[in-house]
Amino acid sequence: MLDDRARMEAAKKEKVEQILAEFQLQEEDLKKVMRRMQKEMDRGLRLETHEEASVKMLPTYVRSTPEGSEVGDFLSLDLGGTNFRVMLVKVGEGEEGQWSVKTKHQMYSIPEDAMTGTAEMLFDYISECISDFLDKHQMKHKKLPLGFTFSFPVRHEDIDKGILLNWTKGFKASGAEGNNVVGLLRDAIKRRGDFEMDVVAMVNDTVATMISCYYEDHQCEVGMIVGTGCNACYMEEMQNVELVEGDEGRMCVNTEWGAFGDSGELDEFLLEYDRLVDESSANPGQQLYEKLIGGKYMGELVRLVLLRLVDENLLFHGEASEQLRTRGAFETRFVSQVESDTGDRKQIYNILSTLGLRPSTTDCDIVRRACESVSTRAAHMCSAGLAGVINRMRESRSEDVMRITVGVDGSVYKLHPSFKERFHASVRRLTPSCEITFIESEEGSGRGAALVSAVACKKACMLGQ
């Protein structure tokens, strides 16, 4: 009897593995994704193909990295998701002549009506938060230079001027797309009239992360975010950046690689679950690469896999709870928690219980395998993109072996128990001629924006502006 049951459990697990095998990517698959990513990057950089390229390769006008001589107080704003952060950054000489960066910050959550109302409502709310922060720190009387981390696709015309191309991540505030974001912020500050600010720089969160990590390690020339969304930036040779005049030196390019796949480059790798996630998203047909990796989508992918296993009578005796059938019910943090389970399955059992399920031991094991399959594919897909960037940098610099540091931020990278190990191992397999160091950014977005502002202020002083 026991043997029969054991055989049935083994057969069930084997069927589960057959279904989950769809998520496995072979090294040849990853090399294919990497080569296609490089081709799209090239198209994004070139003037004649930029418009139709899915990977936009947006110039950021960040050319210099901090040298350690900029000092002063800077205000930093960070808008990239449902939370908005205001930070005071003091850049100065530390002990023994070292450079020191001290920060104080406060988080504000953005109400739904500000995210989806008008641009005026959104930026009025942001300036209200700045006003509140300055009151708390008794700094209303000071006109501070301000660095703005704005983590949406922007076409820069200068370091302090950028046109919002399109909202992502659930934002829909009308009247912002096609307009200068810094102008919208300046107008809102003017409307309030109770404080003055000098907006000197606007950067993407990947750029802010790279600059913040450069402060720790001067070989950091790539910034990457794996959180709600997924994106990367890197220092490109100016001669390859056709959208900006000049051939000397390097400029940081914001790849906006989340949109890779929007022209069909990933079609052969998309599964039924991916198509369902895409169809029910706020932007169907867009940001397809990001939807395979980002935390906004990972939990939902797992939920759809679990429903398939229920329908195949391989999980929960073929019956799903009402909660499990509800879109968004299986949160991405559950994926991390399930994979963090120590082996007694308590954590998995508790999560499934909150979803109205009474799982068996085998159910718990199957749910864990589903989570591992989805998150491992995410790590491997992400590795193909980064390997594409790094191999490109090595080739354009004609280096036999390139040493490089990548600064990384984002909740999936930082909080998932195995993502970074799987990701690092896969990147290294795909970049055999590179020695890569990964560092995690601390308060990256805010500190990085302030350091970019410090560079901009120093330049302005040198130019006598």
Results as ranks from 00 to 15, higher is better:
Ala11Trp: 14
Lys12Asn: 08
Lys13Thr: 10
Glu14Tyr: 14
Lys15Asp: 11
Leu20Ala: 11
Ala21Leu: 10
Phe23Met: 14
Phe23Leu: 10
Leu25Ser: 10
Glu27Tyr: 07
Glu28Leu: 11
Lys32Arg: 12
Lys32Ser: 12
Val33Lys: 02
Met34Leu: 13
Gln38His: 08
Lys39Ser: 07
Leu45Tyr: 01
Glu48Val: 10
Thr49Gly: 14
Thr49Ile: 08
Glu52Asn: 06
Pro59Ala: 05
Pro59Cys: 06
Tyr61Arg: 03
Arg63Gly: 14
Ser64Asn: 15
Ser64Gln: 11
Thr65Met: 15
Gly68Cys: 14
Leu75Thr: 09
Asp78Trp: 03
Gly80Glu: 03
Arg85Pro: 05
Leu88Pro: 03
Leu88His: 15
Leu88Thr: 07
Glu93Tyr: 08
Glu95Val: 09
Glu95Tyr: 10
Gln98His: 12
Trp99Thr: 15
Val101Phe: 12
Thr103Ala: 09
Pro111Lys: 12
Leu122Asp: 00
Tyr125Pro: 02
Ser127Phe: 07
Cys129Thr: 04
Ile130Pro: 01
Leu134Gln: 01
Gln138Asp: 11
Met139Glu: 02
Lys142Phe: 05
Lys143Glu: 06
Pro145Cys: 13
His156Phe: 01
His156Met: 15
Ile159Gly: 04
Thr168Cys: 02
Gly170Glu: 02
Ala173Asp: 00
Gly175Pro: 02
Glu177Trp: 02
Gly178Pro: 00
Asn179Thr: 14
Val181Ala: 00
Val182Gly: 00
Val182His: 03
Val182Trp: 04
Asp187Val: 03
Lys190Glu: 13
Arg191Thr: 03
Arg192Glu: 05
Arg192Val: 04
Val200Glu: 06
Val203Arg: 02
Val207Gly: 03
Met210Gln: 10
Ile211Ser: 15
Ser212Ile: 00
Asp217Glu: 13
Glu221Pro: 03
Met238Thr: 15
Asn240Pro: 10
Leu243Asp: 12
Glu245Arg: 12
Gly249Met: 10
Arg250Asp: 15
Asn254Ile: 06
Glu256Trp: 02
Trp257Gln: 07
Gly261Gln: 00
Glu268Ala: 14
Phe269His: 14
Leu271Asp: 04
Glu272Ile: 09
Tyr273Ile: 09
Arg275Phe: 14
Ser280Ile: 14
Asn283Trp: 13
Gln286Asn: 13
Leu288Met: 15
Gly295Cys: 04
Lys296Asn: 12
Tyr297Gly: 05
Val302Ile: 06
Arg303Ala: 05
Leu304His: 13
Leu304Trp: 08
Val305Ala: 10
Leu306His: 00
Leu306Lys: 00
Leu307Arg: 11
Val310Ala: 11
Val310Gly: 10
Asp311Asn: 08
Asn313Cys: 14
Leu315Arg: 02
His317Tyr: 08
Glu319Phe: 15
Glu322Tyr: 13
Glu322His: 13
Gln323Trp: 06
Arg325Glu: 11
Arg327Gln: 05
Ala329His: 15
Thr332Pro: 03
Phe334Lys: 05
Val335Asp: 09
Val335Arg: 01
Ser336Phe: 11
Ser336Cys: 11
Gln337Glu: 12
Asp341Pro: 11
Asp344Val: 07
Lys346Val: 13
Lys346Gln: 13
Leu352Trp: 05
Ser353Pro: 08
Gly356Thr: 08
Arg358Asn: 08
Arg368Ile: 09
Ser375Lys: 01
Ala379Asn: 04
Cys382Ser: 07
Ser383Pro: 05
Ala384Met: 06
Gly385Phe: 00
Gly385Arg: 02
Ala387Met: 06
Gly388Ile: 02
Val389Trp: 13
Val389Ile: 11
Ile390His: 04
Ile390Lys: 01
Ile390Met: 06
Glu395Val: 12
Glu395Cys: 06
Val406Ser: 03
Val406Ala: 08
Gly407Ile: 07
Val408Phe: 00
Asp409Thr: 09
Val412Arg: 01
Val412Phe: 10
Lys414Trp: 08
Pro417Gly: 09
Ser418Val: 10
Phe419His: 02
Glu421Ser: 10
Phe423Gly: 05
Ala425Lys: 12
Leu430Ser: 06
Leu430His: 08
Ile436Thr: 14
Thr437His: 05
Ser441Leu: 04
Ser441Val: 07
Gly446Tyr: 03
Arg447Ile: 15
Ala450Met: 01
Val452Pro: 02
Val452Trp: 04
Ser453Asn: 06
